[in-house]
């Protein structure tokens, strides 16, 4: 099924490598400009007692701008990467199937804490993407997080985040 997906994906190529090169260079250029701006605000010259706070970062920002401008120009006027897709739709969908659940996972960590969020995440990932029966996912998720709990809370005494709702509060750790 994967092969078929990749085949269809080749027709619907998303962004070209060239476009991506230019976009990343632009983002870097903006970052460089922000650094220059903030260094200028703090003072990028010679103060009464030596170099001011922005003295060093000013040049860093300048170099980011120069190097990203050159990269963008090379991508725009060079021949390489023009027709090459950065990523086709099929593989990109696979990337998103990892990335989006990971974002939800981190979001849920905030409320239920690392252990419970991790167990749920592993279980759902296995059942949804790995097509495992649901009980296998639950068992693997639980066992792994019990091991983590013992390792961090009990053996190494490094407490992990238990979430704003603190559902594991009854354990006393």
């Amino acid at each position: 099924m994967d092969d078929k997906e990749a085949w269809i994906g080749r027709d619907r190529a998303g962004v070209s490598t060239r476009t991506m090169e230019i976009a990343v260079a632009l983002v870097l250029f903006v970052i460089g400009a922000i650094v220059i701006f903030d260094s200028y605000r703090l003072g990028s010259k010679w103060g009464s007692d030596g170099p001011q706070s922005g003295y060093f970062p000013f040049y860093i920002g300048l170099l980011i701008c120069i190097s990203s401008a050159v990269t963008a120009a090379q991508a725009m006027f060079g021949k390489s990467g023009a027709g090459k897709p950065f990523v086709t739709w099929g593989p990109f969908k696979r990337v998103l199937t990892v990335l989006l659940p990971a974002v939800l996972y981190v979001l849920s960590v905030k409320f239920v804490g690392l252990y419970i969020a991790s167990a749920i995440y592993i279980a759902i990932f296995m059942v949804w993407l790995g097509k495992y029966p649901w009980w296998k996912g639950v068992v693997v998720g639980l066992v792994i997080n019990v091991i983590f709990f013992l390792m961090f809370e009990v053996w190494f005494k490094v407490p992990l985040f238990k979430g704003e709702w603190n559902p594991l509060g009854f354990l006393g750790y």
Binding site: A102, V106, V109, G130, V140, I144, F148, V158
Partner: peptide, 18 residues
């Protein structure tokens, strides 16, 4: 991979938190 991948992401998250 569908078992290894989420476990590695979880390990990375724990590592980043600690």
């Amino acid at each position: 991979f569908s078992i290894i991948a989420p476990i590695i992401i979880v390990i990375c998250a724990i590592g980043a938190y600690t």
